[in-house]
Structures are given as C-alpha cells and as structure tokens.
C-alpha cells in the first residue's frame, strides 16, 4: 500500500470508506475489499483470486514453516508467484527495497526505505541515549489484554528502548493479565490505541489509582487509518513509533503535526489538512 497502491487490486481486511475517511485521501486508495487469504481461514476464494489475475501475491508478516508451506501451496494451486516477506519492524527499509526490486520500483522504494530508516535510526538513537521507562500496553476495552515483551504487538514501543512490564518466561504473543499484576508492575507509562479503554478507566478507581494515570502518563494513540502501534503489524507502526518518540521528548505540537503530515504524504501519498491531523491526534 505504501510502495505502489496503484498496483494493489484490493484490501484484505480494511474497509475502503473508513480508510478514506481516516486520511488516505488520495483517490488511488478507493478500491474494493476482497477479503483475506490465509490458509484455511480464507475469505477470498481461490477462483475469485484467479479471476482478478494478479501477477504477484505478497504476504508480509511472520515467516514460519506454516506460512512458508501455505505460500508454497498457494503458488502451486494458482500458478501465481507468491512472495513472503519477514515483517520485522527493524527491517522495514529492507522490506520496501526487496519489494521495490521485484516490482521494478527501485526509486520510490529507496526513497521510502530512507524515510523508514531515518525514523528507525532516530528511535535507536533515542533508545541508546535515554533512560528507559517501563510501559504497559493496554489492548481490549478493559485494558487487561496485552502484548508480552518481545511480541510483534509491542515491538514499535520497545524499539525506543522502553521496557515492557509484561514479561513472561513461558508465554509469547498476546495474553490476558490480572489487574493485581498490573498494580504490582506499576509501569511508568500506560500506552493504548483502544478508545474504549481510555473511556473505561475514567470511571475505574483501580486504574485511576495507578501511578502512571495519576501522573498523567496515559498515552492514547489513534487506530486510524491503521493502528499506530499495532494492528496490523506493518509500516503503519513507524508513524506511531515516531509520534511516541515526539511525545516522550516533549516536541512542540507544530512539529508533531508536521511529522504526521509528512508521514502521510510520503507513505500514503495523501495530503492531510491541519484539522485532519489534529483530529487524528486528539483521540
């Protein structure tokens, strides 16, 4: 979507109207929702896929034996080349360049890769030079679902050197945790991109008694047009990562707004007006 939206046939999960409302104003983003294509849990039938006649199927995310074998099978069944790219956030630039090479779009890919690298280098520099705060990433309306340390859900925050309080030796990925455990962890910052959670804690005495909330360290991120930190784990996380760094450094609001505008311009080829930016930031 970032590299060459004009070549994209449709969306897997996104609702196009919602994307356009949320700031992807460029008309090239107006395309149908086709449904996702993943193993047995597939909404797009292989016959409809063949009817669309794509030249290439790209899947960016986890590369595991399961995903590899699924990609192989898809390629065998449809005869369409299938490309599986490792979705690790730190490798964003390499992903863009790799796809650029395959699609013959090296120039734009290199420009985007440089932008991605800038954001990541800044973040790595921040991580190396600042003392690390601890954070809790609240998902779901009651905030008790979280991404465990090292999972793709909190990668964007951890790149900045922040320490995820939810560390587990035996589990990986998403988990449900108890409120007692959150009090015990006592994080410096609580981060969320779930608007219902931000409302929920207004009336919740236990959440309100946490140090992070009392010291005004609840950072709410937008989930439009995509989640800024998670959901889905893609290039969209660079926007959240940059915004988080700006918030931690207390950068002036004007600069923050400008950064958001530029990100949309570079990665989504869409011009956001200031009111639109402010609406995204005011969540």
């Amino acid at each position: 979507m970032a590299l060459c939206p004009e070549k994209l046939l449709g969306y897997a999960n996104q609702n196009p109207a919602a994307l356009i409302r949320a700031g992807l104003t460029n008309p090239i983003f107006d395309k149908p929702k086709l449904g996702r294509l993943s193993g047995k849990n597939t909404l797009l039938s292989l016959e409809s896929l063949l009817q669309l006649q794509p030249d290439l199927i790209v899947d960016c995310g986890n590369v595991s034996n399961t995903h590899l074998s699924l990609a192989h099978r898809l390629q065998q069944l449809t005869g369409i080349n299938t490309l599986l790219i490792d979705g690790n956030l730190q490798d964003s630039a390499a992903q863009l360049q790799q796809l650029g090479q395959v699609l013959g779009l090296e120039t734009r890919a290199n420009i985007l890769a440089e932008k991605a690298n800038n954001i990541l280098n800044n973040a790595n520099h921040y991580a190396a030079t600042h003392s690390s705060k601890s954070f809790y990433f609240a998902r779901s309306p009651n905030g008790q679902q979280t991404g465990l340390s090292g999972s793709i859900h909190t990668q964007a925050i951890e790149v900045l050197g922040l320490k995820n309080v939810a560390q587990s030796q035996h589990f990986y990925g998403l988990a449900q945790v108890s409120m007692e455990q959150i009090i015990q962890w006592d994080p410096d910052v609580i981060i969320t991109q779930e608007p219902l959670f931000a409302q929920h804690i207004q009336h919740h005495p236990v959440w309100r008694s946490l140090r992070a909330i009392k010291t005004n360290q609840l950072l709410v991120f937008s989930n439009q047009p995509f989640g800024w930190l998670d959901t889905p784990p893609g290039i969209n996380r660079l926007l959240g990562l940059q915004y988080l760094q700006n918030r931690l450094l207390n950068i002036s609001p004007q600069q923050v707004e400008l950064d958001v505008q530029q990100f949309f311009e570079h990665f989504y080829q869409s011009q956001l007006s200031l009111p639109q930016v402010r609406q995204l930031l005011a969540i």
């Binding site: 996702r36 779901s140 679902q145 449900q176 989640g227 959901t231 784990p233």
Partner: peptide, 14 residues
Amino acid sequence: LLADPYSQLPSITF
C-alpha cells in the same frame, strides 16, 4: 471469520 484478526479475534477467543 469477519472479525478484525488483529484486535477483535483475540478478544473473542479470550
């Protein structure tokens, strides 16, 4: 099947 696989599906499963 229709739910957002990144946010709603885990909540449903839990």
